[in-house]
C-alpha cells in the first residue's frame, strides 16, 4: 500500500506529463495545418508536370532511344529503396509501419536474388534499419522539415539519385513514405520513381490532342530536362505527404496520451482520497477506543 506522500508525488508527475503531451498535441496540430496547406499548394505544379510528361511520354515513351529514366535500363537487378521517415519519435506507429514495410520489401527483393541499396531520409528509419541492413546503407539525409519541407531539400535528394542513376549504380528506384489520408490515418505507400511509370492515357481525345504538340527544342531535349525535375517534384511531394502524416500521427498519439494521463490521474486521485479517509477513520478509532479504555 503506497503512502499518501507517494500517491501525491505520482499524481503530480502524471499531471506534468499530461501538460507536456497536451502541449505537443497543440504544436503538432498547428504544424499539421501548415503541412497540409503546403501539400495542397504543391499540387498544381505536380499535376501540370504530369500532364506535360504524359503528353511527351505518349509520343516518345515506347520508341527506341527514349531516355533511360523513362524506359529503364533494361534490367532490374539493382534496386534503390528510399525510405522516408521522421527525425523525431513520439508519433505513434508512424515510423514503425514504414520500417516494417521497408523490411518486407527489402527482404523480398533479397530473396529474389536482387541487389538492394538503401537511401535513408530521417533519423528514426536509419536507427531502426541499421541493425538488419546496415551494410546496404548508402546516403542518409537528416534534419529535414525543421522549418517545414523546402523544395531545395527534395532537389538535393533528387540530384543525388540522378547522379547515382547516371553512374549506373541502380536500375529501379522506389520511395517508401506515408501517404496522408487524414489526421488520424496514414497509408504506407511504395512509389516507383525510376523508370518513371507512364500514366495511362485517359481517352482517345487526349491522345489526339497530344499528337499536335510542337516541341522546342526537340522532344528528347525537353524530356532530358523534365525527367530529373519530375524526380525532384515527386520527391518533394512524398516528403510533404510524409511530413503531414508525421504531424497527424503525432497529434493522434499525443491526444491518446493526454487522455490516458487524465484517466490515470482520476484513478490515482480516488485512491489517494480513499487512503486519506481510511487513515482518518483509523485515527478516530484509535482516539475513541483510547477514550473508552479510560
Amino acid at each position: 500500500m503506497p503512502s499518501l506522500k507517494d500517491l501525491r508525488v505520482r499524481i503530480n508527475s502524471v499531471k506534468s506529463t499530461r501538460k507536456i503531451t497536451s502541449a505537443m498535441k497543440m504544436v503538432a496540430a498547428s504544424k499539421l495545418r501548415r503541412a497540409q496547406t503546403a501539400a495542397e499548394a504543391a499540387r498544381p505544379y505536380a499535376e501540370r508536370m504530369e500532364r506535360i510528361l504524359g503528353a511527351l511520354a505518349g509520343s516518345l515513351g515506347s520508341q527506341e532511344g527514349a531516355p533511360r529514366m523513362l524506359a529503364g535500363t533494361g534490367s532490374d537487378s539493382v534496386h534503390l529503396v528510399i525510405v522516408a521517415t521522421s527525425d523525431r519519435g513520439l508519433c505513434g506507429g508512424f515510423n514503425a509501419t514504414i520500417v516494417r514495410n521497408s523490411r518486407q520489401l527489402v527482404n523480398g527483393l533479397l530473396a529474389e536474388g536482387k541487389t538492394v541499396k538503401l537511401m535513408l531520409v530521417g533519423r528514426k528509419g536509419r536507427d531502426q534499419l541499421r541493425r538488419d541492413f546496415g551494410k546496404l546503407f548508402g546516403e542518409t539525409f537528416e534534419g529535414l522539415g525543421r522549418r517545414g519541407i523546402e523544395y531545395a531539400d527534395a532537389e538535393a535528394i533528387a540530384r543525388k539519385v540522378t547522379a547515382m542513376f547516371e553512374a549506373g549504380e541502380f536500375d529501379v528506384a522506389t520511395v517508401i513514405y506515408n501517404r496522408f489520408k487524414s489526421a488520424i490515418s496514414q497509408e504506407v505507400t511504395r512509389q516507383q520513381l525510376i523508370p518513371f511509370p507512364v500514366p495511362p492515357k485517359k481517352d482517345e481525345v487526349a491522345g489526339e490532342m497530344q499528337a499536335q504538340y510542337e516541341y522546342e527544342p526537340s522532344e528528347e531535349g525537353i524530356l532530358n530536362e523534365l525527367l530529373p525535375r519530375n524526380l525532384a517534384v515527386q520527391m518533394y511531394r512524398a516528403l510533404l505527404e510524409n511530413f503531414a502524416s508525421e504531424q497527424g500521427a503525432r497529434m493522434t498519439a499525443m491526444d491518446n496520451a493526454t487522455r490516458n494521463a487524465g484517466d490515470m490521474i482520476n484513478g490515482l486521485t480516488i485512491r489517494y482520497n480513499r487512503t486519506r479517509q481510511a487513515q482518518i477513520t483509523k485515527e478516530l478509532i484509535e482516539i475513541i477506543s483510547g477514550a473508552e479504555a479510560l
Binding site: 498544381p44 505544379y45 523544395y151 522546342e216
Partner: peptide, 27 residues
C-alpha cells in the same frame, strides 16, 4: 495564363499576351 512553382500557384489570370524567354528565342 498560369505561373506555377513547386511550392505554390503564383499566378492564374486572363491575359492578352505573354512573352516568354524560350531556350531557342523569345516567343
Amino acid at each position: 495564363f498560369e505561373l506555377v512553382s513547386p511550392a505554390k500557384l503564383l499566378m492564374s489570370e486572363q491575359v492578352e499576351m505573354v512573352v516568354m524567354p524560350g531556350t531557342e528565342g523569345n516567343f
